[in-house]
C-alpha cells in the first residue's frame, strides 16, 4: 500500500514537472501570443486589449501561478484560437484517438503473434529471413510515407477503402493498419526471439517426446511463456500509441487529439498545447503505474523488493 501511495505521489510530481517545463518552453519560443491571437492586421489598441484580457502582460511566474491555481480546480483554460474550454476540446477528440490507438494495438498484437509463430516455426529458413527484411523495412518506413502510400494505392488506385476521414468503421482500417504495423513487426521480432529460446528448452522437448503435436506445442506450451515480457511493452505502448498518432491523424484526417495538438503548435495556442501535453503525460504516467501494479500481481518476486 505504501508503495502504491509513493508511486502516485511520484506521478503527481512528474505531472507538475511536465507542466512547468511546457509552460516555460511555450514562453521561451519567440513569438508574441497576443500578436498571434489578434492576427497580423490588429492595431496597437487591439493588441493591448488582448494582452490585458488574457493577462499576458503579467510576469511569467504570476501567469504560471494563476495557471496552476486554475488547474487544481480542473480548469485548463480556454483556447486562444476558438475560445472554447480546453477540457471540452480534448474530451471531444479523445474517443477518436482512443479508438485509433486501441485498434492499432489490436493490429500490432495480431501481427506480432502471427509473425512470431510463423517465423519461429520456420526459424532459419528463407521464410524467416524474408520476414526479417520485411520487418526492418516496415520499421524504418516513416509513418506519413506509409500512410500516403496506403491512401494512394488502397484508397485511390484500388478503391478498396475510403480516402481518410472518420465517418464509418471502414475508415478506421487503413490508419489502424498503418499505425499498428510498425509496432506489430517490433512485437513479432521480440516474441520471435523469446519463442525460439523457449522452443529450445527442456520442457518443450519433453512435451514433444510425449507426442504433443507441433501446433499445440507452439500455442499451448511455448507461446504462453514467451508472451510474458510483452505485457510490459503493450501497457506502455498503448500510451505511446495515444501520443504517437499526430502524423497518422494528420495524413488520414482523423479528428483526434494528435491533430488538435499539431494545429495548436502551429497557432501557438498555448492553453491547448499545455492541455494536450498534460493529457499525454498523464497517460504515460498512468500506464507505467498500471504496468508496475500488474507486474506485481503477475510476478510475486517483485513484491519482495
Amino acid at each position: 500500500m505504501r508503495y502504491i501511495v509513493a508511486r502516485i505521489v511520484w506521478a503527481l510530481v512528474i505531472l507538475l514537472g511536465t507542466s512547468t517545463i511546457t509552460f516555460g518552453v511555450a514562453f521561451l519560443v519567440p513569438g508574441d501570443p497576443a500578436r498571434v491571437i489578434a492576427g497580423p492586421r490588429a492595431d496597437a489598441e487591439t493588441l493591448a486589449r488582448v494582452r490585458s484580457d488574457l493577462a499576458l502582460d503579467a510576469p511569467v511566474a504570476t501567469q504560471y501561478a494563476r495557471y496552476l491555481g486554475r488547474l487544481v480546480r480542473g480548469d485548463l483554460g480556454r483556447s486562444y484560437a476558438t475560445r472554447e474550454p480546453v477540457g471540452t476540446l480534448l474530451l471531444r477528440r479523445l474517443p477518436a484517438t482512443a479508438t485509433l490507438a486501441l485498434a492499432a494495438l489490436g493490429v500490432a498484437i495480431a501481427i506480432g503473434l502471427l509473425g512470431a509463430t510463423v517465423t519461429a516455426r520456420f526459424a532459419g529458413t528463407w521464410i524467416d529471413r524474408t520476414a526479417l527484411v520485411a520487418s526492418l523495412t516496415l520499421l524504418s518506413a516513416p509513418v506519413f510515407w506509409l500512410g500516403m502510400l496506403a491512401l494512394y494505392y488502397v484508397g485511390y488506385r484500388w478503391r478498396l477503402l475510403p480516402l481518410g476521414g472518420a465517418s464509418s468503421p471502414r475508415h478506421l482500417i487503413l490508419p489502424a493498419l498503418v499505425l499498428g504495423s510498425g509496432t506489430g513487426v517490433y512485437y513479432a521480432r521480440l516474441l520471435h526471439t523469446n519463442l525460439v529460446e523457449v522452443l529450445g528448452q527442456e520442457y518443450i522437448r519433453a512435451a514433444r517426446g510425449r507426442g504433443v503435436g507441433p501446433v499445440r506445442l507452439l500455442f499451448r506450451h511455448a507461446l504462453r511463456n514467451a508472451c510474458l515480457p510483452l505485457v510490459t511493452v503493450i501497457g506502455l505502448d498503448l500510451a505511446a500509441l495515444m501520443n504517437g498518432v499526430v502524423l497518422t491523424e494528420t495524413v488520414f484526417h482523423w479528428p483526434g487529439i494528435g491533430r488538435l495538438a499539431f494545429e495548436a503548435v502551429l497557432n501557438l495556442d498555448v492553453p491547448v498545447i499545455m492541455g494536450a501535453v498534460l493529457l499525454s503525460a498523464s497517460l504515460v504516467v498512468t500506464a507505467s503505474l498500471m504496468v508496475d501494479l500488474v507486474y506485481r500481481a503477475i510476478d510475486p518476486r517483485i513484491r519482495l523488493e
Partner: peptide, 26 residues
C-alpha cells in the same frame, strides 16, 4: 494460464474501442 488471461482482456479492450467508435461514427 495468466498469459492467456491477457488475451481476453485485450479482446475486452477491442470491444471498448468498438463501443467508443460506435459513438463517434457520423
Amino acid at each position: 494460464m495468466r498469459t492467456y488471461a491477457t488475451l481476453p482482456s485485450l479482446l475486452t479492450g477491442l470491444c471498448v474501442a468498438a463501443c467508443l467508435a460506435g459513438c463517434m461514427w457520423e
